[in-house]
Simulated scan of single mutants.
Amino acid sequence: MTSGPFLHTTPDEVLSETTEQLVAIPFKGKTPRQFRLMLPVSIDVLLDHPTTYAAFDQDEYMPYWAELWPSALMLGEAIAQRAWSTEMQVLEVGCGLGLPGLVALALGMEVVFSDYDVAALGFAARNARLNGFEQFRTLPLDWRCPPNDLKVPLILAADVIYEARNIAPLIQLMATVLTPGGECWLSDPDRPHKQEFQQSLRDQGFEFEALPRSLERLGQPTVQGTVYRIMSPWLRISG
């Protein structure tokens, strides 16, 4: 495992075949909006590539970004049902294909898509433009090394606590990047680390709401999960 920042770039040669998926997100008081997503045809090709094996040996990397996960849909639906201040800057962490960020863009926010696979950032940017958005930028980011020069009032993160080792650095990212009183909205399909995550938030002084979610998709099993609204303390005492 690497001791410093880790960034990876999935080679273009395994990303040439893509497919388009339409996703409908219901917005509060409005008809559902359809988003067009471009994504790799198959994650299996990425899994079997030699660069993935090498990246896994270096940092246990896996190309999870190349699929649209239920948690991304849960998070997108959750933020679409809230009223937000427009033009606020948002950081999406581990953005993958960028669906929650697209919803934020549709709500009038400015989005920073971040991921530690540069190829994922390319797809997120492509999807943003495909849906008519321009008020975004991309940021290669290993969340274990939070940037001190970026402060935002809102962080979005979908299905990022799939391993216990992610919990501490993600909470540190919130503490570093969120402005006082800012929020992180994080979705999770109730993976085994749920209780550990909640206790770690409490230990670090974060208050949170755990909002149960149920995702139903035609012809697929219902997925149960949680969207966390995590509130950053207004004041932090250093030392």
Rank of each mutant, 00 (worst) to 15 (best):
P169W: 12
E216H: 13
I171F: 04
A164N: 06
D115L: 01
L99D: 08
R213V: 07
V23R: 01
L105D: 07
P32I: 07
V112H: 02
T52H: 01
E163I: 07
Y61V: 14
G96M: 07
S200H: 15
M231P: 00
L218C: 11
P192D: 09
L201E: 02
A106H: 10
E87A: 13
V112F: 03
A164H: 10
D48R: 13
E216S: 12
L139C: 08
L68K: 00
P50H: 04
A24S: 14
Y61T: 05
L22M: 11
A24G: 05
M231C: 12
R202M: 10
T226D: 02
F113R: 00
H193V: 06
T51P: 00
L47H: 13
Q89S: 11
A104R: 05
M1Y: 15
T10G: 02
L211M: 10
L211K: 02
L141R: 00
G101S: 07
G239N: 10
R144C: 11
G225D: 03
G96Q: 05
A66L: 05
V14L: 07
S85Y: 15
K194A: 14
S238G: 10
L178H: 01
I167L: 07
Q135T: 13
A120D: 03
P63C: 12
A128T: 04
A119Y: 04
L173C: 08
R202I: 12
A55P: 05
T18P: 03
D59Y: 13
P40W: 03
Q220V: 03
F113P: 01
D159K: 03
L7R: 06
L102K: 04
M74F: 03
G98Y: 07
L170A: 01
E20I: 09
T222D: 06
L215A: 06
I161S: 01
R213F: 10
G96L: 06
R236M: 13
G98R: 01
P221S: 09
V152T: 04
Q204G: 00
G76I: 05
M62N: 13
E87D: 14
L218M: 11
T18V: 15
L15V: 09
Y116V: 02
T10C: 08
M62W: 15
T19P: 01
P233N: 05
V227D: 01
G76E: 09
R126Q: 14
W143M: 11
V112D: 02
V23P: 00
A83N: 12
R229Q: 12
E134L: 15
E92F: 07
T138A: 05
L173T: 10
Q81R: 09
T19W: 00
P169D: 13
L97R: 07
M1E: 11
D59N: 15
L141I: 06
